[in-house]
Design a protein around this nucleic acid. Structure first.
Lengths: 112, 112
DNA sequence: GGTATTATTCGACATATTTCGAAAGAAGGC
DNA sequence: GCCTTCTTTCGAAATATGTCGAATAATACC
């Protein structure tokens, strides 16, 4: 590999994450859309493949907020950064929360 | 009554409220504390009785955010403004969501 | 009408957050 | 080593948000 490998990403344990940080992370339209997409695709996705309308730098910002809120796990695969939702960990920490949020967004988009 | 009664407060129907607005409303420590307090007291409370540490003007701001997110209902009783959580309406619109959020905060405060 | 109580509004300030383009950087292929 | 691909970082700008004190305003009591 290269002589300066990318630094390892920090993934906080769910126990250290504030409830308000999680709620804040999900209160943004773009981040909520990312989480919905990942919830429907347990195998995850590469950064550049999400159906969102923001600049790549803004997307990096949003991934960072989600990662620091403990909602996603990311790892590098070649030039791509792969993202999965930390469903089990979030469900263990906040039982029923993620499903309720996803369900709430589905009602909203069904009405649109 | 007086000749200039206070204008009626606007309480949006839950159908018109964005999921992100609800999540945003709850992503603040003070507002989350208000919602927890109200969840435990279905009869509601007067504005000045909540165990929070902010100025009255800031509290008014937070009540406004919660009201506009459709989470609380407020009415005037003499010089007091009474507040209740709109539990049934929120549960009807976002089944399981409110309980999951409250449960999440209880885990958090149990760990403190 | 004056006073007390309760709460809001107003305006200002500080901080937080979202956004982007340009530059930078790592991995991979040739 | 160069080029391509993918993504991040940096710095800046705009917007959003939380905070407060002072002033305002309605209700209630006398």
């Amino acid at each position: 590999m290269g002589h300066n490998p990318r630094p390892a990403l920090h993934h906080p344990t769910l126990e250290t994450v504030l409830v308000t940080a999680v709620l804040h992370a999900l209160s943004d339209e773009t981040r909520l859309s990312i989480v919905r997409t990942l919830h429907a695709e347990p195998d995850g996705r590469a950064c550049g493949t999400f159906p969102v309308n923001v600049a790549p730098s803004t997307l990096s910002h949003h991934f960072k907020v989600l990662r620091e809120a403990g909602l996603i796990r990311q790892e590098d695969r070649g030039t791509q950064r792969w993202t999965v939702l930390r469903v089990r960990e979030v469900d263990a920490r906040f039982p029923g929360f993620l499903n309720a949020v996803i369900a709430a967004t589905e009602v909203a988009s069904a009405r649109s």
